[in-house]
Amino acid sequence: MNSRTRTRSQKSAYLYILPALSASLLFVGFPLAQTMWYSLHRWDGLSTPIWVGFDNYIEQVMSPRVQAALLHSIVFIFFFALLPVCIGLISASLLSTKRLRGLGFFRTVLFLPQVIALTVTGMAWRWMYNLNGPINEILASIGLGDLARPWLGDFDWALPAVGFVGTWIVFGFCMILFLSGIARIDPGLYDAAKIDGSGPIQEFFAVTLPGVKPELGVALTITIIGGLRSFDIVYMTTRGGPGTATTVPALEIYQQAFVDGTVGSAASIAVMLVAMIMVAALVLRRIFRTEQ
């Protein structure tokens, strides 16, 4: 192929992405630019915005409430991303080592949390964590009644309790992803590993883990972004309480914009959150770039 036709074909290729690009600019780029613009103003959502430069950013970064929210979202990366990915990896490799009767059934059951509406999940977990709820009853029945507490109302335990709900929801999705990744691995590699004398653990690290690297990249990207921008689980379980023990940036944005009526400062948190998510996504892309 000569270089001239190649150039021409590349130019015309831009035409193909034009519809998607313009839709994305209209529905993502424009609102994002607008949010950035608002973030430089003091604005109640109705009257004339007042230019304040970067004051909103300075104020929000200094606010203990926002700092707490940012810290919680980092804790949530553990519960929404790292933990479910680990559990998903382990359960996927266990499920695929042996030919399991009823694999489809287990797959469905473990994927179910992903399908249930989050409002329902939130209500159910509120009840689970209740003082008279099943978790405390189980603790009491095995003689650990002293540990019983209103989990979501406990300043020390509310954050991990909410985080665990996230783990419960996300890990099924990770597992399904890894199962399909493992199915793609050449069985010959496992045989070769066995012949070389590796046990199940060595096999996992030598064959399974490298084999699902693309899936690992996808899972971590989606779940880390999910953890950073989590809102619904917190809103449905604790609304950020007790005190500010479980507040997250997205909840702070919602409350500042729609409860306090300070749209400008809410927009500044939104811009910072978007920046955090973009950095996370870029780093992950770097790490998991597949060498062609």
């Binding site: 109302g153 309480g241 007790p242 005190g243 300070t262």
Partner: peptide, 16 residues
């Protein structure tokens, strides 16, 4: 406008 968000979580902290 933001008093509710100061008062309610604050009282949770007081009660704890």
């Amino acid at each position: 406008p933001s008093m509710q968000r100061t008062e309610n979580p604050g009282l949770q902290e007081v009660l704890a």
